[in-house]
């Protein structure tokens, strides 16, 4: 923990700094520049000051209304998938085998959805959930439940949530599994000696050991679901109506679809600020856990 203080370390960080600055700062400056201007096309820009930002924060305007409702949908989406993926991921991790060939087999199968290009994830579910040629859509309709994600907003949401659960639960499960694997056997033996119930083992041994990885899992899942674009875009295109139009979809529509650069830029900045704020909270929590770690670990060393 007592790392030496040495500002020459900056030299080692410099290459990373250069590339990330090139990739992040220059574009962000463009965005800020756009956000205070308006255009009539033909690359003619004029000063608009904070106009777009005022509109953005005003729910009664067109822009403000669209952003607010897509923000709401995004938050609802993130909430739903976290509520499903975290408990399911923990349950799957607890059920995973600990030894033998089954471990490798399970890991490989579980990791597969994570390595599928995101638009192919969309394609897979687009096909799988269709009523005419998809197994899922066909089976659900056969059961007498009307299901069509193209016309029914609820069906569209169910499809997108199922797709996200399919795509990302393995990430949560693999993280938790890594946390569980780090628990020495003596803990389970001691718990048996102490007469602990299965629940107590989970509550007092497994959950505390998974806490750190769970925070990483929640952080990654929240952020990635908050900027989800490709998968729902392929499946529903944001519809029916605007029912699955999330922030990123709205933004790309504005920027590349309508070339409303000013609005899009202002929205980008607001979007990024929200992300930064959430990220900061998680980062603070995680660094605090890092401080606690060394003492906690010395005991478990084996």
């Amino acid at each position: 923990m007592d790392r030496p203080y040495d500002n020459r370390a900056w030299l080692l960080v410099l290459p990373v700094l250069a590339i990330v600055a090139f990739s992040a700062v220059i574009p962000l400056m463009t965005v800020v520049n756009y956000s205070v201007q308006d255009t009539f096309g033909n690359n003619q820009f004029f000063w608009n000051g904070a106009g777009w930002f005022k509109e953005l924060l005003d729910p009664s305007s067109d822009l403000g209304g669209r952003v607010l409702s897509s923000l709401g949908r995004n938050l609802a989406f993130s909430g739903i998938i976290l509520a499903i993926e975290v408990p399911l991921g923990i349950a799957v991790a607890l059920a995973m085998p600990r030894e033998g060939w089954k471990v490798a087999a399970t890991l490989v199968l579980m990791a597969m959805p994570l390595l599928v290009p995101w638009n192919v994830v969309g394609t897979i579910w687009q096909v799988f959930a269709r009523g005419d040629i998809g197994l899922l859509g066909y089976a659900v309709n056969k059961l007498g439940i009307p299901y069509n994600y193209v016309s029914d907003p609820i069906a569209a949401w169910v499809t997108i949530v199922a797709m996200d659960v399919w795509h990302w639960t393995s990430l949560v499960a693999l993280l938790c599994y890594a946390g569980l694997k780090s628990i020495p056997d003596a803990y389970y033996q001691a718990a048996r000696i102490d007469g602990a119930s299965r629940w107590a083992v989970f509550r007092f041994i497994q959950l505390p050991k998974m806490r750190r990885v769970l925070i990483i899992a929640v952080l990654l899942r929240f952020m990635d679901s908050f900027m989800i674009y490709t998968e729902p875009f392929v499946v529903t295109g944001g519809g029916p109506g605007n029912s699955t139009t999330f922030l990123s979809i709205e933004l790309v529509k504005l920027a590349l679809g309508q070339f409303d650069l000013g609005k899009a830029a202002a929205m980008s900045i607001a979007y990024n600020l929200v992300i930064l704020a959430v990220c900061w909270v998680f980062y603070t929590v995680m660094t605090n856990l890092d401080v606690e770690r060394p003492q906690a670990e010395t005991g478990a060393a084996s």
Partner: peptide
């Protein structure tokens, strides 16, 4: 090592991992 602004730099780097690609497209 510890160095001037290390924590802030680390956070700033991480925040780029979290930034929505949609913002950067244009």
């Amino acid at each position: 090592y510890r160095f001037l602004g290390d924590k802030h730099l680390f956070f700033w780097l991480l925040s780029n991992r979290m930034a929505p690609p949609a913002i950067f497209a244009l």
